[in-house]
Design a protein around this nucleic acid. Structure first.
Lengths: 345, 345
DNA sequence: CTGAAAGCGCTAACAT
DNA sequence: ATGTTAGCGCTTTCAG
């Protein structure tokens, strides 16, 4: 049905290799096909609506140019700023002629067939994965990059510089004159390295000023109670994400607590900071898209590196640059000051 | 490196075909391999850590078991309830041993290579696609299902029964005694069949009671102005999605307009209805996950149907059931009544 | 029930 | 510069 290089070769009266070379623009080794032949071949290919068969190519090259996105938690993938990460990832992969497969990890274990069966050349993971998955991937020597997760220092990963972000937020509040400052994480937030890192950064800033850091990991109802009652309530609150900020800000409206007069509020992610909020939210922003695009570059590099490595083992390679070097990248944060923070009244 | 059926065949002293058959549990035509041989083959395969090479299989079967998700607008894919649709889609595809590829459609047109190059067997689309994409897909005879889009009646598609949903929302408000009722769509919402369908359903209900429907497609600022000034302001508002409802509800809090006493509010999607709102939102819900899982079933059916169809053309098929029948599915809605609606005061 | 063999379409090493 | 050829690993007739 679909035209192959053989069909073209026959019509052009040349060999299939010539067709393949011309169509791929292969000029390796100063190669240059005679212009006339090349033109005719291209014309015929065009007329026949030729398209390289990617399945055949993948089979021959032993490489699909596919990257798997491994995840266990559906909600996580599409939550918060992860949509931006995913966008950056997909777009960047496409730039390098790769594509992304969605691979949910179930208990059933049928992901192994897909991941290890050779339908993908490497994988990228969101959130933390079960240890068995990591083991499997490592044993299979599959290139892998962790996104938003630094739980395995052995593997390449990209995370936000959460500590620095929380630190800058705390510094901002302290500079405004706040003394009772807290960090709030909603109780539905699952365990994640970013919680610890943000807490670390926050507490470091507080300690530098001999202040006592408060930390809450509870429901919004409980947090609101704490914020509205008592004289020792915090006057500054840093939220784990803009979602917490939204909940708190609206609750404060309803309880008559003025922001920023009675409470200074800082978010994280710059996700809902201006859309749903009055006043607009001071928040710790970062380039989520970049996490994805960097991830794409790293995984492709890693795949290419491994391929070279494999060729070496078969004695085809030239020399030995360091094999897929493990890397850890931190994406920087930026404090965006808007209307939700002010000196305490 | 990785074991193949030949490696196993050699060790077991049988032919590769036998290995292939045993490992696949192929019992076609009442076939049953001798138990002892089969057991030994399986044992060896296991010991060698054999895994079928999916690239080779795809090449041989001329089918990858991949489905492409085609989209032009990043934001759309991850917006609103579409994350749920995507979840349902991916999970259901996996149940049938298929997988999903993310295929952003750019102007560059490099999506054609991926889609038409045989890396996917069929495609599913979100939102409306450029006409040229649809033309290409149709000409290539690629199986395709439209999700949340009925703009092309020629193609199989699944949509929410938006008209019925809006109708039920309007009926609810009318039954409560409201007379001035409006439908509100935020001005950032891109053109989509659901806007028209919801408007149709809303207006139908209003006409049945000889009431005048109001419709706004504007910024939230403008909508709020309308809601807070004048005596002929609406007492009931149906929002295009829970997002509009959120914006409106919080603005009303800030303007001292009580919900539901002064304004009854209805959302759509049941997305933020209980999380961010006081009172909880009356909303039109539907099973977004189901759109995805139905979509998966339909696209796989369509792919299988086409395969049979192709075999027929080569004279291999048996008989001729209707080829991939085009279908249009509507997912039903359900009005969930919570605290944001009440009789007008 | 089993084995031999053709074929899927492309890449790349080798020969000319 | 071009042609020849040998894979890539699995599926699927077709003989036996």
């Amino acid at each position: 049905m679909a035209a192959t290089i053989y069909d073209i070769a026959k019509q052009a009266g040349v060999s299939s290799s010539t067709v393949a070379r011309v169509l791929r623009g292969d000029t390796k080794g100063g190669r240059r096909d005679s212009a006339e032949r090349a033109a005719r071949i291209r014309e015929i290919a065009n007329r026949l609506g030729y398209r390289p068969n990617l399945r055949a190519r993948a089979f021959s090259e032993q490489r699909t140019k596919g990257v798997g996105l491994l995840y266990t938690d559906d909600a996580w993938v599409f939550e918060g700023v992860n949509d931006k990460v995913l966008q950056g990832l997909v777009r960047e992969l496409r730039k390098f002629d790769h594509h992304l497969l969605l691979v949910p990890i179930d208990d059933g274990g049928d992901w192994e067939e897909l991941v290890l069966g050779g339908h993908i050349d490497g994988s990228v993971t969101f959130q933390f994965l079960p240890a068995c998955v990591r083991t499997t991937i490592r044993e299979a020597q599959m290139p892998c990059v962790l996104l938003g997760d630094n739980s395995d220092p052995e593997l390449a990963h990209i995370v936000v510089d959460d500590a620095a972000g929380a630190y800058s937020a705390a510094r901002h509040l302290i500079a405004l004159g706040h003394r009772r400052i807290g960090l709030y994480v909603h109780d539905t937030v699952k365990p994640h390295c970013s919680i610890r890192d943000r807490r670390d950064g926050f507490e470091a800033a507080m300690r530098e000023h001999a202040l006592t850091p408060c930390f809450w990991h509870c429901s919004d109802g409980e947090m609101v109670s704490t914020l509205v009652r008592g004289d020792d309530r915090p006057t500054g609150l840093i939220c784990y994400s803009d979602l917490e900020s939204t909940l708190i800000m609206h609750a404060m409206w309803q309880h008559g607590v003025k922001i920023p007069a009675d409470l200074s509020l800082i978010g994280f992610n710059d996700k809902f900071a201006t859309k749903h909020m009055t006043p607009h939210l001071t928040t710790v922003a970062f380039d989520a898209n970049r996490i994805g695009s960097l991830g794409a570059q790293m995984i492709i590099e890693s795949i290419d590196g491994q391929e070279r490595h494999d060729q070496q083992r078969h004695g085809v390679g030239q020399q030995g640059p360091a094999s897929a070097e493990k890397r850890a990248v931190k994406v920087s944060t930026q404090l965006i000051i808007r209307g939700s923070t002010a000196p305490p009244s």
